[in-house]
């Protein structure tokens, strides 16, 4: 059988794709996001999702989970942080997981809500690498939430076409919060 150039190329690509995936398959699932700089896997991503959901939980209204805050945080760190800041955040993430294991005996994902809260409570007041990771992630979580479609349509309305400007209006006359 004659193998066309196209078929041959395809086979090569499939084989190399398999090789590229192999090592990470052995450990864990890959992250759902395609990242350029960060070495983050599916477990890390799941942990981030749980962390952001602890920072801004789902109540009767959407929280960090619904606005996919972990994906936004990863995108920002991957694209908009310099190498040094990325490294600091990654180191902090490992420390954060280690600290969680030390305090609770298991990973953040497997911790109870009470365990998670007690961990974050302590980090709010601390300075080290784990606290740094938590604070940066929290800042990005807040940014993701307050810039989400939900927040900017239901909580504080972002008006694309305000068509007005009043320079001096009594606060009590405002009927809604707008940006």
């Amino acid at each position: 059988m004659q193998v066309s150039r196209r078929t041959a190329l395809k086979q090569v690509l499939m084989v190399s794709a398999g090789i590229a995936l192999l090592p990470s398959c052995l450990h864990t699932t890959p992250a759902t996001l395609k990242l350029k700089n960060l070495d983050v896997n599916g477990d890390d991503e799941k942990m981030l999702e749980e962390l952001t959901a602890t920072i801004i939980p789902t109540t009767k209204t959407p929280g960090a989970r619904e606005v996919k805050a972990q994906q936004f945080a990863l995108t920002m760190i991957d694209d908009c942080f310099n190498k040094e800041a990325q490294q600091k955040w990654m180191t902090g993430m490992k420390e954060f997981e280690a600290l969680c294991k030390k305090q609770t005996g298991h990973s953040f994902v497997n911790s109870t809500p009470a365990e998670r809260e007690s961990l974050l409570q302590s980090l709010e007041k601390e300075e080290g690498p784990a606290a740094h990771f938590y604070k940066v992630t929290k800042r990005l979580t807040i940014q993701a939430y307050t810039n989400s479609e939900y927040y900017l349509t239901k909580v504080e309305e972002y008006e694309l076409v305000p068509a007005r400007f009043h320079g001096s209006i009594p606060v009590k006359d405002l009927t809604k919060k707008t940006l």
Binding site: E159, P162, A163, R164, F165, H166, G167, S168, I169, P170, V171, K172, L174, T178
Partner: peptide, 10 residues
């Protein structure tokens, strides 16, 4: 002017 604010953008 705590009881005064702006509304819209400029």
């Amino acid at each position: 002017f705590k009881d005064i604010t702006t509304d819209g953008r400029r």
